[in-house]
């Protein structure tokens, strides 16, 4: 039987699965390039690596149109409030990839100027290692995130509580108020 003989094509599925499938296939990243990693992020979007295979080639300049913030590079104390503001402007559902060791832990710059891990300011879903991560590493992080979206829950808002790796009893975690922003002068 040829396809044109079919009168009605239809798929059935649970609405949850469909929503997750659709979300996963069109995650639009916000351009949040900070340092070295931003160059690799641009390379990932360009010819050789071609992020558009995953429905992600549209880097949105306005945070309100973006679903994913790729924090690409080191976050300074001066940048931290700006980063938080951009994150707050993004619509739910939203995800964060911390790209590179500087964004994830401060990296080799353990000093007064750099926020030691962007997870002190915004909740992070996937950490991409490397200094800078090659485009392949970034793509792996993105695919990991896709898998998280596919297997996650759709109705659950981002918890204002603890990120998973800290465990649920950690009382020090208050991401709604940016804790590390303007830490003040180290002594």
């Amino acid at each position: 039987m040829a396809l044109e003989d079919l009168q009605h094509n239809f798929l059935t599925g649970r609405i949850e699965d469909l929503v997750k499938w659709a979300r996963r296939a069109s995650v639009w990243p916000a351009t949040f390039g900070l340092a070295c990693c931003a160059i690799e992020m641009m390379a990932a979007g360009a010819a050789d690596y071609d992020l558009s295979r995953y429905g992600m080639e549209v880097f949105r300049n306005s945070p309100r149109q973006a679903d994913l913030m790729i924090v690409a590079g080191r976050v300074s104390q001066k940048m931290a409030p700006v980063l938080r503001q951009v994150y707050d402007q993004m619509m739910e559902p939203k995800w964060v990839i911390s790209m590179g060791v500087c964004a994830s832990t401060g990296g080799m710059f353990n000093n007064y100027a750099i926020v030691q891990g962007v997870d002190q300011i915004v909740p992070v879903d996937v950490y991409a290692p490397g200094c800078p991560p090659s485009p392949e590493t970034l793509m792996h992080a993105i695919l990991t995130l896709h898998e998280q979206i596919r297997t996650g829950e759709i109705m659950k808002r981002r918890e204002s509580g603890t990120p998973t790796h800290l465990g649920h009893d950690n009382g020090n975690w208050t991401p709604e108020v940016p804790v590390s922003v303007r830490l003040g002068t180290p002594k």
Partner: peptide
């Protein structure tokens, strides 16, 4: 400016001359 201030000059004082190249290479990343 200053939104990417990394304190590299301070970090450079903590690293030995052998390690120093790792630090400065991250200044102009292009």
């Amino acid at each position: 400016i200053g939104y990417l201030h990394t304190g590299m000059e301070k970090t450079g004082e903590q690293l030995t001359y052998t390690q120093g190249a790792t630090n400065v290479t991250r200044m102009d990343y292009v």
